[in-house]
């Protein structure tokens, strides 16, 4: 597991100018008792971009979002939202900033529409504009048919969509979303991603927290990866793709132990027991060819050899110390034992 952060071409925190970035968090730390929840974390997101905030559970994503939304006091570091410094947890959230952490919560005895109406009042939205904006927000998240039902009867997915609608009421130019599709069915998740993409096209900056690299890879332009409260990558999605190691091959033999033993005596390749019972071979193609021939000479039958692509998901898991699981490539196996 890497111990140092990898930084791409995102603006350096100290060089992030007010006009170029929507959110600049620099050196943010937060300690709970004897545990460092965040340790010198940086997060820079530009206007008009979807910025992925990645990390496994417990990495510090939600704590960082709480700090950025002014819910939790940071021990040190600075936060600037839309060019304005976030000084304390007492002030109101600046205009144009919205978001939620965890599953959004509402008063169960209110209807979805009334819940939004109360929040719109807290935002100072005038009565004349309120109803129209609430109706549009409900429509954007496909909650109009359930708008007059009590929130207490909503599913987690519906509450999540209502949370997004509540954020949309603030006409966000900077939006923090904490795993916004985690409780949604595929169709609803696609709708939410579309809403976020459209907001970004209109110039808003979206910080999208997730522990699914594939979702961030599809949606976001830039990404910050956290692990155990520290930044371990910060850059564009293309830059994190460039970190991918060469393809590995899944190898199935008649005697895997002997095959591993043989590999140990050869240079230029790495063989390990992988998932699904197959061996994982990481090697340049020449070394792989020589290894396959050597296996045959040693009387070890090669039953299957299949190339696997290294996905960003697997890189993410590797970066964050999780188990590496590679997706099978769609290509045919490159070699088969007779």
């Amino acid at each position: 597991m890497p111990t140092t952060a990898v930084r791409g071409n995102l603006p350096k925190p100290e060089g992030a100018t007010v006009g170029s970035v929507a959110v600049a968090a620099v050196g943010v730390s937060k300690r709970y008792g004897d545990r460092d929840a965040l340790c010198g974390v940086d997060l820079i997101a530009r206007h008009g971009q979807l910025h992925g905030l990645l990390g496994p559970n417990g990495a510090g994503k939600t704590t960082l979002l709480r700090v950025l939304l002014g819910l939790v006091r940071r021990d040190c570091g600075s936060v600037t939202l839309l060019g304005r410094p976030l000084e304390s947890t007492n002030g109101p959230l600046p205009d144009g900033v919205a978001g939620f952490v965890d599953t959004p919560a509402f008063y169960p005895y209110l209807s979805g529409r009334n819940a939004l109406a109360l929040l719109a009042r807290l935002d100072g939205i005038g009565r004349s504009a309120r109803d129209e904006r609430i109706a549009r927000a409900l429509h954007d998240v496909s909650l109009t048919p359930h708008a007059d039902e009590a929130v207490g009867g909503y599913s987690a997915g519906m509450r999540q969509r209502l949370g997004i609608a509540a954020s949309l009421l603030r006409s966000p130019r900077l939006l923090f979303l904490d795993e916004p599709t985690s409780s949604l069915d595929p169709a609803s998740a696609r709708e939410v991603r579309t809403v976020a993409s459209n907001l970004a096209k209109d110039g808003a900056s979206i910080v999208w927290s997730s522990h699914h690299m594939s979702e961030v890879e599809d949606l976001c332009h830039t990404v910050t990866v956290l692990n155990r409260g520290r930044t371990i990558f910060s850059g564009t999605v293309d830059e994190i793709r460039a970190l991918l190691p060469p393809a590995v091959h899944a190898l199935s033999t008649s005697d895997d132990d002997a095959a591993i033993d043989l590999a140990r005596r050869r240079a230029g390749l790495r063989v390990s027991a992988g998932a699904m019972g197959a061996l994982e071979v990481s090697a340049a193609i020449d070394a792989l060819d020589e290894y396959v021939v050597a296996l045959g000479r040693a009387g070890i039958a090669v039953r299957a050899l299949q190339r696997r692509n290294r996905t960003l998901e697997s890189l993410f898991l590797e970066l964050t110390g999780g188990a590496v699981i590679d997706a099978p490539d769609s290509t045919e196996p490159v070699a088969m034992a007779p």
Partner: peptide, 14 residues
Amino acid sequence: YGTWTTILTRSRSR
């Protein structure tokens, strides 16, 4: 109800 995060992320101070 877990609604502190909901009302504190609006335009009103604590």
